[in-house]
């Protein structure tokens, strides 16, 4: 029984991290039948700034909906990484975009870096799916949710006609993590 598992997805406004948080929460809550709560925090900017989405996962009821001590932090920008990494618990997982976060904070956590935005741009061919690449990468690293549930949740949320590119994005993220873990 998992009491409480906390993730924070951070980056800048417009990267689709709030949607990514919703997808992750729905994968867990709807397609795996466990409990998940997603919250967000954002500034006045629709694009840019530091933005974050949090997902708390539990097999029991979730009272406090915000993250207190992070099991996982994903950061797609240096700014968001610097701003939010302080809440990561010792031994937690820090996932960063290796091109964007050039100076990851030092600490007692496990660092996983990959060129997430770059993968979206070159391997998938669309920068707008950066959030889905990130989800694929995160799903493989954390193993917090099944591939099947994630894919169902993605397909339920993305616009019609973009299913294929989003599936590719998820797979590319997953494969990048797989390569990293094998190396």
């Amino acid at each position: 029984m998992m009491e409480r598992y906390e993730l924070r997805l951070s980056g800048s406004g417009g990267q689709g991290l709030i949607l990514a948080g919703k997808i992750l929460a729905e994968a867990v809550a709807i397609y795996e039948g466990r409990n998940a709560v997603q919250t967000q925090s954002y500034g006045p900017e629709a694009r840019g700034g530091a933005s974050k989405a949090e997902v708390v996962i539990s097999d029991g009821d979730i009272d406090y909906p915000k993250a207190m001590s992070l099991d996982v932090l994903l950061s797609l920008t240096q700014e968001s990484c610097a701003k939010y990494s302080g809440d990561l618990k010792p031994g937690g997982i820090l996932i960063v975009d290796s091109e964007m976060v050039t100076d990851p904070p030092r600490g007692e956590y496990r660092l996983y870096a990959a060129p997430i935005t770059e993968i979206a741009t070159t391997r998938v061919g669309k920068v707008v799916v950066t959030n889905i690449v990130a989800l694929g990468f995160l799903a493989r690293i954390t193993e917090i949710v099944s591939v099947g549930a994630m894919k169902k949740a993605i397909l339920a949320r993305v616009p019609k006609g973009t299913e294929e590119v989003n599936m590719k994005a998820f797979d590319e993220g997953w494969n990048a993590a797989e390569e990293l873990l094998r190396a």
Partner: peptide
Amino acid sequence: EITGHTTEK
């Protein structure tokens, strides 16, 4: 704001 923007079951 928390209640309004928290996504849950």
